[in-house]
């Protein structure tokens, strides 16, 4: 059953175990890693060690990690907001205009199945090596995800609800605002969460190819210098960013939809 049936104390205990367990997994992983290097099973030059990574993070956090991460996240957020707005609006338009949807369908499929990384050099040529080309690449990923999920959510309305709507005599506007739109919201939200991660990916990829600032650019710089501890530290920062973004999105989703969808648990830890 859901968490609603448990007492508050039991819930807190369960959460404490959950977090303790996760920390333990991390520590065990770091321990094995360190031991493997210490006893000569792995070459430190290729895999570095956990203490070195921590040392790098401490030394470079303020002057290097934070400003670069800020730049990456800023570009990601711009791309995400644009993907969200444009994706939802285009999704709605395609549902409302089925003839247009039929017309452009092959183009959408072609664009969406194109490996976006192959477009990155073009974007860099067109938009330069600053924020714009990162945003455009990330947008080209996020937009389609939101578009598809909006379209799917709006098309998959429970036929019984459509029957109800017809028997009650809902106007097209009433059916749209009172049935189709709320029905699609969980699916749209799932698309937005996916788009968030893909926008992050798009920005980092663009930065790795050509950029002045950003976590992706930093990785390329340090791997050129064969500084494994720096590369791994930046990867760790990226992972933390991605997990944090997902958690925030989960919480927003649970706050907005948790009461009527089954997704209540996703907000916990």
């Amino acid at each position: 059953m859901t968490d609603e049936n448990k007492t508050r104390g039991a819930l807190i205990r369960e959460l404490a175990w959950l977090y303790a367990g996760r920390v333990l997994i991390l520590l065990a992983f770091a321990g094995v890693w360190w031991a493997a290097v210490r006893f000569g099973l792995a070459d430190k030059f290729f895999v570095s060690t956990p203490p070195e990574i921590v040392r790098f993070l401490f030394a470079n956090f303020r002057k290097e990690i934070v400003p670069n991460a800020a730049d990456t996240l800023r570009a990601m957020l711009i791309a995400f907001v644009l993907s969200g707005v444009a994706g939802v609006l285009s999704g709605l338009a395609l549902v409302e205009l089925p003839r247009v949807k039929r017309l452009v369908d092959p183009f959408l499929t072609a664009l969406n199945s194109m490996p976006r990384i192959a477009l990155a050099p073009i974007f860099i040529l067109w938009f330069g090596i600053e924020t714009t080309s990162k945003v455009v690449l990330a947008f080209s990923l996020g937009f389609f995800i939101v578009l598809m999920s909006t379209y799917a959510g709006m098309r998959n309305v429970d036929p019984t609800l459509i029957r109800l709507s017809r028997s009650l005599g809902c106007s097209p506007w009433q059916q749209f605002t009172k049935i189709t739109l709320p029905w699609a919201i969980p699916t749209v939200f799932a698309g937005l969460k996916l788009a968030l991660i893909y926008c992050f990916l798009g920005v980092v990829t663009s930065e790795m190819l050509a950029s002045k600032v950003g976590l992706g650019q930093l990785i390329m710089y340090y791997s050129g210098l064969l500084r494994m501890e720096a590369v791994l530290a930046i990867l760790l920062v990226m992972a933390v960013c991605a997990v944090a973004l997902t958690m925030i999105a989960d919480r927003i989703e649970a706050a907005l939809l948790g009461s009527w969808t089954e997704s209540l648990q996703s907000a916990r830890g």
């Binding site: 609800l161 029957r163 109800l164 017809r166 005599g169 809902c170 009172k178 709320p182 009527w260």
Partner: peptide, 20 residues
């Protein structure tokens, strides 16, 4: 005619709106 107010139709499925 669909949507006549003098007819109420109930189905085998509850057709409740989950968000309400």
């Amino acid at each position: 005619r669909a949507g006549r107010q003098d007819i109420a139709y109930m189905f085998a499925q509850d057709a409740l709106l989950p968000w309400r």
